[in-house]
Structure formats: structure tokens, C-alpha cells
Nucleic acid binder design. Structure first.
Lengths: 233, 233
DNA sequence: GCAAATTAATGATTTATTCAAG
DNA sequence: CTTGAATAAATCATTAATTTGC
């Protein structure tokens, strides 16, 4: 019971009975889309599952007439991975520069059309897809907001470590956090949110109680606190 | 510092300086996409903003060759609102029946292609768009999970809703969750389920800090800090 | 200097919340 | 009160930077 379990950090959730499937485009190893076995279902569903096997693509959306008010958001993952190796978008300086300008100019969540246009323009400076633009705005907005919040809270502007996983491990009397994809993990891998909410508090408590004995030297990929940069401390 | 902060549960974010714009399609009244004023930017960006005024649509994505593994998710809002009045999808019995079957069959987050196929099939039973299918799976999964969780927590299977806030409420010897501005739940009881242990530790800690002073009866929307990790305290 | 090890950034997805139509 | 729709937060994963021990 006092043993440390070291394993891949899987999402808090559980993957139900979803079969495992690997993506070709990228290296993800965790279970992805289910892939319902047709043989298992076609018999019960009065629905042409056959056509599900190999679809065309299409989804030819017509340009909505005019209104600029139309939210008509983006189509994140709707694009086809163009990069062969399955690597992620690596923006060029120029691309970033332009995106930041647009952002500073007030653009926040461009709709599909705008995204398409931006993409076309940015293509001049390097490979890029619409979803990249979409994600960039999403992430940039969210991260700017975090920065703002941290600043307003007077927390150290530490742009510190983001990859701290949210898992906490209880074992014996220790609590540890895993880092990046691999590390410690306790038997307690609850996925409940209340649990997560307590993390920091629990940690402080344990520290106070001198229950924290593991040192960084003892375990490379182990770090005790700042669970989240925002937590500071 | 020992004071309890009681406030309305507003989203962590704020709407920065985003200009307000109303959608025509739906009635949302909060700030939406920015709509960057061109006159303000074109002068500084070496980037053809002009072309942003009135785009075409396109985004003709080619069907990715084969792999079914490709995550290639959906394109939620990528569709064009076809309904004139801006009403939302009103699924027919048949459509729901089929969707539920697919769900029970194991399907969770179909990719774009699958969505497209499903959409085509479901069109036989009534008007429907790809995004409707996408959202349906999203919502269904989330709500099934809630039901499950509530059940596992032994909470009243209150058909009550989804707005389980993420806040935790501490009070006396109980740990509660706030629920839609009002209710609170559960006590920190028995066992040493690490999960519960965590809760109780947190509780003890807070109590120790004299941060626990309010009673359930004293207020409805009680919220004790770490709502979100970033909020820290 | 260099290459492995580690940290910081940030692209990409999923999940949680919110809102409001019906 | 149910649930479609949409956004924000959280999370995961990969790559760029930086550090560290030769």
C-alpha cells in the first residue's frame, strides 16, 4: 500500500468501454473515438450504418449570406491534417506578428469566414490551417486572461510551469503530483471535481503536518508544489 | 482574511473590452465577437484587411483519405444556419431514437465524417445539421455522466439540473456543493476513502484557519475560494 | 561546446458551465 | 424543466528553450 505507482498519466475520466485506437496523424496513444463495431449494431438499428464505413467528406457549407453578426464560429478540427508527419502547427514569426496585431486590434473569436480569410493571408508566410487560427485565438484569449487575473491577484507573474498535471496522489501519508505525462500516481485517481478542488488545500495541510517527505532529489519527475502556476505560493 | 466571500457565481472571465454585438440568429445578449473596426487597423497592418470585409465561404475540406483513427472532430458551429427564424434544432422521435442507439452502441464523439453521415441519415426524419449531431453527443455524454455521478454519490437522483457548480461549500462539519445558486449537499462522512479523506482534510484545514464561519442557513450562494485553480485564493 | 535532462510555451482537445429557446 | 447551443476552463501533448553534467 505504500508503493508508488508510476504510470502514464491518463485523464481523470475513464474511458468507459471505448476501444483503443491510435491516431495516425499524431502520436496520441490514448483511447479515442469509439469506432462502434458495425457488426454489433447494424442488426439492431434501422439505420444505414453501412454508409458509415467510408464517407465522403464534403460538408460544403455555403457562405452565409451577409450578416457579420452571425456568430457562425470556426471549424476547429474540421480540417484535414495536411502535414504528413502529423506534427502540429509551428507558427512563423510573421504569422504570430499578424495574429497578435489582429488580437490587439480587438479581434477575439473570428467566425469561420474571417478565419478562412486570415488563413489565406497567413499562408503566405508558412503552412497553416483554419483550425490553427481558431485555436490560436482561443488560447491567446484564455492565456491573456490568466495573465491578467494573476496580475490582479498580485500573484507572482510567474509564467511558471503549466504542465503540472492535476493529479494528486495519496499513498501512505504522502501526496505527490505528477508531471508531464509520466509520474507518480496513487491509487486514488478520482476524477471528481470536488477532489480536485481540495488539492491545494490538502497539500498545504499535509505540508503543515510534515507529511511531505519526498524531496525532489529522490525522484526526478516529482515536484511538490505549484500545482498550477496560478496557485503561486 | 478569515472572511467568507459570498458572491454571485460569475464566470472567471470578464469580457475585456470586447465590443458588444448581438447575433441575429439567436438572442444572446452578451458580448460576442468583436468585429474589429477596420479603419483602426488597416493602417498599421501590412496585411490585407480589406479582404476581411466580405468573405466567401468555401472551406472545402477534402475527405481525408482513409484512416478511421483520425480524430478529425466535428465542426460545431461551422454550419450555416439554415433555419430562417433562427430557431434551434428540434429533434424528432426517430432522430433521438437513432442517436441514442448509436450512443448505447458506444459512439461518443464522432468525427466529422461520421457526423456527416449521421446527419445525412437523420435528415430522412427531419431537418438537421451536422452541428446538431455534434452537440447532441456532447450534451448527452455530459449529462449521462452527471446522472452517473449523482447516483454514485447517493445524491437524490434529482432530475434537477445540470448546473452543478464547481464550488465547494464548507460549513460546520459538512462539505457541500452548491447547486444552482441554492442547494448544498453531502456531509463528510465515514470511511477513509482517499477522496473523502481529502475533503475532510481540506475541511479541517479551513476550520483551523477559522475560515469556516458561515452556516448553511446564512446564505444561499456561498462560495469559498478555490473555485478554480487559477483563482487560487 | 554539446547532448541529455528538464522546464517553459503553447498548440490541440475535452470537459464544465452557462444561457436561453421551447 | 428539459436540452440545444455556445463559450470558457481545464487538460493533454508536443515542441521550443533552457539548464546541467561532462
Amino acid at each position: 500500500m505504500g508503493s508508488m505507482k508510476v504510470h502514464q498519466f491518463t485523464r481523470g475520466g475513464f474511458w468507459e468501454h471505448e476501444p483503443l485506437s491510435l491516431t495516425l496523424g499524431c502520436k496520441r496513444l490514448r483511447p479515442l473515438a469509439p469506432k462502434l463495431s458495425n457488426s454489433n449494431i447494424t442488426t439492431t438499428i434501422p439505420f444505414d450504418l453501412k454508409s458509415f464505413i467510408k464517407p465522403e467528406s464534403g460538408s460544403t457549407k455555403l457562405g452565409s449570406s451577409y450578416d457579420d453578426n452571425k456568430k457562425d464560429p470556426p471549424s476547429p478540427k474540421d480540417q484535414v491534417e495536411t502535414h504528413p508527419g502529423g506534427t502540429r502547427w509551428n507558427p512563423t514569426q510573421e504569422q504570430i506578428r499578424i495574429l497578435e496585431m489582429l488580437y490587439r486590434g480587438g479581434m477575439r473569436t473570428p467566425n469561420t469566414q474571417k478565419i478562412e480569410q486570415i488563413t489565406v493571408q497567413l499562408s503566405k508566410y508558412g503552412k497553416i490551417e483554419g483550425k490553427n487560427v481558431f485555436y490560436w485565438f482561443q488560447n491567446h484569449k484564455a492565456r491573456e486572461r490568466q495573465k491578467q487575473k494573476r496580475k490582479s491577484l498580485g500573484l507572482p507573474l510567474s509564467p511558471r510551469t503549466p504542465t503540472f498535471t492535476s493529479s494528486i496522489t495519496f499513498e501512505t501519508t504522502m501526496v505527490c503530483y505528477s508531471y508531464t505525462n509520466t509520474s507518480i500516481y496513487g491509487e486514488v485517481d478520482e476524477e471528481d471535481s470536488p477532489y480536485k478542488k481540495c488539492r491545494s488545500m490538502a497539500f498545504e495541510y499535509l505540508e503543515e503536518q510534515n507529511w511531505l517527505s519526498c524531496k525532489k532529489e529522490e525522484h526526478k519527475t516529482l515536484e511538490l508544489f505549484p500545482l498550477y502556476p496560478e496557485l503561486g505560493r
